[in-house]
Amino acid sequence: AFVLFFFLMFVGGCSGSTAGGMKIFRFQLSLIVLREQLMRLLHPRAVFTRNYNGRAVSDEIISSMIAYTFIFLLCLLIITVALAALQLDFITSLSGALTVLTNVGPALGDTIGPAGNFAPLPEAAKWILSVGMLMGRLEILSVVIVLSPAFWRS
């Protein structure tokens, strides 16, 4: 149950939901791309079309999905390392970072799990988790764009 709940935290919710996370839509697109790549190995000269709900999926959408996934995982890594640097255990650091990025509720472990709360964490950890929560709630790419110098120059 622990491992299943951890992986479900990545999903966050369905498209259009206020939860952050990868969303089911991105996982479905990933499976479509994976299936296409496997079919290309079997039939290298075949022509394939990617369809989702009866509509063609462009390369631009796939590129956007890959960029979001990379930035999501990078943010997860940065927040996890920052929390671990504050002497929090690995489960608390990783699940805390994941729960704030996906806005799904409780994390895992004894400290911030379903039976615990964020009160015993150090102040610095609460600030890190607050920034992560804003990133998850406002969509990570939006926050990254607003914080980039190129946005403010133009």
Rank of each mutant, 00 (worst) to 15 (best):
E36L: 05
E36G: 01
E36C: 10
Q37I: 09
L38P: 02
M39W: 03
R40M: 05
R40P: 01
R40L: 12
R40G: 00
R40W: 06
L41A: 11
L41W: 14
L42Y: 12
L42F: 14
L42V: 15
H43K: 15
H43Q: 15
H43D: 15
R45V: 10
R45F: 14
A46M: 10
A46R: 14
A46T: 04
T49F: 14
R50F: 06
R50Q: 12
R50N: 12
N51M: 12
N51C: 10
Y52V: 03
Y52A: 02
Y52R: 02
G54Q: 08
A56L: 10
A56D: 11
A56Y: 07
A56R: 13
A56G: 11
V57S: 06
V57Q: 03
S58N: 08
D59G: 13
D59E: 09
E60P: 02
I61M: 11
I61V: 13
I62A: 12
I62C: 08
I62Y: 00
S63H: 09
S63I: 06
M65A: 15
M65E: 08
I66S: 07
A67Q: 09
Y68P: 05
Y68D: 07
T69C: 11
F70Y: 09
F70S: 11
F70G: 12
F70N: 07
I71M: 13
F72S: 02
F72R: 00
C75V: 11
L77M: 13
L77G: 08
I78Y: 10
T80V: 00
T80F: 00
T80Y: 01
T80K: 03
V81E: 01
L83K: 01
A84G: 05
A84K: 11
A85Y: 04
L86C: 06
L86D: 04
Q87K: 15
L88G: 01
F90T: 08
I91F: 01
I91G: 00
I91L: 15
I91D: 01
T92W: 00
L94Q: 00
G96F: 05
G96S: 04
A97M: 00
A97Q: 02
L98K: 01
V100I: 05
T102W: 12
T102M: 08
N103I: 07
V104Q: 03
G105N: 07
G105F: 05
P106W: 05
A107V: 06
A107D: 01
A107P: 04
D110G: 13
D110I: 08
T111L: 15
I112D: 01
G113C: 02
G113H: 06
P114F: 10
P114Y: 15
G116Q: 06
N117S: 14
F118E: 02
A119S: 10
A119Q: 10
P120I: 00
P120K: 04
L121I: 13
L121A: 11
P122A: 14
E123V: 13
E123P: 04
E123S: 14
E123C: 07
A124E: 12
A124C: 06
K126F: 11
K126M: 14
W127Y: 13
I128R: 05
L129G: 04
S130W: 09
S130F: 14
M133Q: 09
L134G: 14
L134N: 03
M135T: 05
